[in-house]
């Protein structure tokens, strides 16, 4: 099995450790991983801003980078959802359908494809899990609080395999953090307020770390935490699942 590693642009640029952890974790689990070096951005920021018609080139680039792999895995629910929902190509019309089905967010790849049931990881801290909306409501990584349906959570399932980790309960377990792509600057006031409220929920429940499957939400919350001079840190879930802290 060969996996093409799909690293969101901002993760590449600002959070290489999340990408390294994803790579190492997959390798530890016996997967052959290749990172196609010509990747840039999946086009989501443009598309969500109403400019989906400008994403033709990034779609083609994505296909050129990732065709030929058995799976495409990314440490981001949001970018994965975008490719699953909106990958189109006039240039490669026959390849988009199959590629959409091969794109996986990291945690769902671990639980659903690799069927991971144990991990050699240790992270002895109080951790709050932020359920990013696109992963949760889009990819259904966890049951949504609005629905009358049985509970499940793929990220929680994985976190429960980590030695020493104490997962905190939140008052609002799947409220949006307010990042929302360009929403974070176009609607700055509400975006920040949503972020502050989300962070507060984690702080009130004494989280030492806030984790999640989407670095973009974490980047937004980190920006708020750091402005508040808080000691609470954000960490991508891959880094916890790959952690070897003593």
């Amino acid at each position: 099995m060969t996996v093409g590693l799909f690293i969101p642009c901002y993760v590449d640029q600002f959070y290489p450790n999340a990408a390294i952890a994803t790579l190492e974790l997959l390798e530890k689990l016996g997967v052959e991983v290749v990172y196609p070096s010509r990747q840039t951005c999946c086009g989501q920021p443009m598309a969500n801003s109403g400019f989906e018609h400008l994403t033709k080139k990034s779609n083609n680039l994505f296909i050129e980078n990732f065709r030929g792999f058995d799976y495409i895995v990314a440490p981001s629910g949001s970018c994965v959802l975008h490719m699953k929902d909106h990958l189109h190509s006039g240039k490669y019309p026959n390849e988009t359908e199959a590629m959409r089905g091969k794109v996986y967010e990291l945690t769902e790849f671990l639980t659903d494809v690799l069927k991971v049931d144990k991990l050699k990881a240790r992270f002895p801290h109080k951790v709050g899990l932020h359920q990013s909306c696109h992963g949760q409501r889009g990819l259904k990584l966890a049951q949504m609080s609005e629905l009358v349906a049985p509970a499940f959570s793929k990220p929680e399932q994985l976190l429960s395999m980590v030695d020493g980790l104490e997962l905190i309960e939140l008052t609002r377990k799947d409220e949006c953090c307010g990042f929302g792509g360009t929403f974070c600057v176009a609607e700055e006031a509400v975006s920040v307020k949503m972020g502050k409220d989300r962070v507060m929920d984690h702080l009130q429940h004494e989280a030492a770390y806030i984790t999640g499957a989407d670095m973009s939400c974490l980047m937004h919350m980190e920006g708020i935490l750091r402005r508040q001079k808080s000691n609470v840190k954000v960490v991508h879930i891959a880094e916890i699942l790959n952690a070897q802290e003593i």
Binding site: Q13, F14, P16, Y35, E188, E222
Partner: peptide
């Protein structure tokens, strides 16, 4: 607008690439 109430992520010494 990002910077008004949020810090920027600190650029790491190298990108993942």
């Amino acid at each position: 607008p990002w910077y008004k109430q949020r810090e920027m992520p600190a650029p790491p010494k190298e990108s993942f690439g």
